[in-house]
Design a protein around this nucleic acid. Sequence first.
DNA 1: CACATTAGTTAGCATAGCTAACTATATTTT
DNA 2: AAAATATAGTTAGCTATGCTAACTAATGTG
Lengths: 161, 161
Amino acid sequence: MMADEKSAPKPDPSSHPDSRPDVLAIADRLHSAAIHLLRRVRKQDVATGEGPARLSALSVLVFGGAKTLGELAAAEQVKPPTMSRIVAGLARSRLIQITADPRDARRMRIVATSKGVRLLQQGRQRRIAYLASHLDRLTPEELAKLGEAVEILKKLFEAWL
Amino acid sequence: MMADEKSAPKPDPSSHPDSRPDVLAIADRLHSAAIHLLRRVRKQDVATGEGPARLSALSVLVFGGAKTLGELAAAEQVKPPTMSRIVAGLARSRLIQITADPRDARRMRIVATSKGVRLLQQGRQRRIAYLASHLDRLTPEELAKLGEAVEILKKLFEAWL
DNA sequence: CACATTAGTTAGCATAGCTAACTATATTTT
DNA sequence: AAAATATAGTTAGCTATGCTAACTAATGTG
């Protein structure tokens, strides 16, 4: 895990394309906050018995429907051989079902099984409940600000890649 | 990577300790936003030539000063054998310096070398600059809200573990 | 001094990432 | 239609990160 890295070195606006000098400082702390958040939440996933790459690929299938191996690899930003092994592991645990594509024998059609859906939803439930139990310490005003910030980020990500 | 998972199932306030029903929804989206953010920013680290575990351990040393192997393992929430290999890798790349503790020959004193400090700062620079270049699309108002939210999270984390 | 505790290492296992080289099927070109 | 090319996945083999169990070495403690 990254260390706290509280204080970034002072940005020098004259040598940087950013028009506003505080953007770097906010980027810095946002980065640090995201690391801290996930570091804490991820520990809940151990209870599912599956590793993070498998859980993540499974979530693509559960929320996005049937995919080929190549589509899954692209969605996860991973190379095909890597996804090949992840898929093999998920199949061994009976969390996905693989069938042949009738149009193109090279392709595989991958779907989550009901067991896969169940496992993912329970894991998600655990993570979110854990995070929510801590957010519960915040005041309603703080919570509202957090909600707004998340919406801003969501919008930003849509225009990112 | 986790899929988007936009819409959480409606929370049932009667069956959950949360007094406010929207806490779960905010937790859900905050979690998703953190995943998306780090997924994007982490790719900048490839340029350092070191893996994430080594960079993270190195950052603890750079920002926290000398540590023993056990202290590093605790800071990274990792078991000693894991940290043992991470430290070996960092030493091989001359990013850290290991000396014996004169008081206790079992302990090792680990510090970042100037090469280590340089590498970490450059990597950090890259990550933050990349993130900042995207945050630059936001309005000053949005940026300010983001800054507030980060402060709220920071405060929350301090009272977390 | 004998025994227990503590700090790190070694061995061995699993997951997860990569590239290079392969097989099998489709598509395109000649 | 045959040959060449392109595409989908797999296999083999490397590195890095995580773990537990079992070990060595040094320190404390009775």
